[in-house]
């Protein structure tokens, strides 16, 4: 059963190797952006020792970790892939297989993203870690919790993209919703831009009820040691809850979409 889906993961991983040049270009541009960002924060911290509990080293660590995690957001193409499958009618081929569409999509995305994690995110992070003398997580346990939190955040991001993709069954064009959710709301509330502690109270409150902070802020704050003890456990429970809710909504969505497809035709 699991083997079936793991094959999608390994094949997707393999497929990513096809476009090596693009991957190198992507990495190169990412690194440039991160450099600019790091120097910006260094400049902002001139004459400051600590802001909202972050010293210079703390903020740089936060920025590099969150920027690295952001890579998932702009390399995950789940919504676009579903939209294209609907537009070309290829989704029918998936329907004709004894397979769960959502799990298959997740397994495939995981394959592509593992490649991204290994060959883009990890080298990028190590480069900045070495160049700017960033901190490591306080303990080995934190590293482990960080990784689990990253995975949960990833599944939340996936589920959002999946739901957006499902809209393609009803709408001709999903770029609007995609831009609003992923480039608008997610950028603002996921905490990639700056730590959520820096937000004015009302924006922080809005961020607290939305799922976006569970994508980047939680794992990053676990890494930097901002989230510890009870607050860390709460954060991870919130992540788990969002995974359940969003995966569930995605399932309802695609069931409805397939029902529409099989009743009204593609």
């Amino acid at each position: 059963m699991m083997k079936k889906y793991l094959t999608f993961t390994t094949k997707a991983f393999q497929r990513t190797l096809t476009y090596r040049f693009e991957l190198w270009m992507e990495l190169f541009i990412n690194v440039l952006f991160m450099l600019v960002y790091v120097y910006l924060w260094k400049a902002l911290y001139t004459g400051q020792t600590s802001v909202e509990g972050y010293d210079l080293n703390g903020i740089l660590t936060y920025i590099v970790v969150s920027q690295t995690l952001l890579t998932f957001t702009f390399t995950l193409r789940v919504a676009r892939i579903i939209e294209e499958k609907v537009r070309t009618g290829e989704v029918v081929t998936d329907l004709m297989k004894p397979i769960d569409f959502q799990l298959m999509t997740l397994a495939t995305a995981a394959g592509t993203s593992s490649h991204t994690a290994l060959f883009n995110m990890l080298p990028k992070f190590l480069l900045f870690y070495g160049a700017f003398g960033l901190s490591l997580p306080p303990s080995l346990l934190t590293v482990l919790l960080f990784i689990i939190s990253v995975v949960l955040g990833y599944v939340i991001l996936f589920s959002m993209e999946f739901i957006i993709g499902i809209f393609a069954f009803w709408l001709v064009e999903i770029r609007g919703i995609y831009a609003l959710v992923i480039w608008g709301l997610s950028m603002l509330f996921s905490g990639y831009f700056l730590p959520l502690e820096f937000y004015p109270a009302f924006l922080a409150k809005v961020a607290a009820v939305l799922p976006f902070r569970a994508i980047i802020y939680f794992p990053t704050a676990i890494y930097t040691g901002q989230l510890i003890g009870e607050r860390l456990i709460t954060a991870m429970l919130i992540q788990l809850a969002w995974v359940a809710v969003l995966i569930g909504l995605g399932r309802l969505g695609y069931r409805a979409a397939f029902r529409k497809l099989v009743i009204q035709g593609g």
Binding site: T7, K11, T93, K97, P98, I99
Partner: peptide, 27 residues
């Protein structure tokens, strides 16, 4: 099922990989 106008094979992978994928899909 075969549709002449579209393929169920993975575009960027060797043919044999798609076959292996199908092996797992259909167990």
């Amino acid at each position: 099922v075969v549709f002449g106008q579209r393929t169920q094979l993975w575009w960027d992978l060797p043919v044999i990989d798609s076959f292996e994928l199908l092996k797992h899909i259909y167990e």
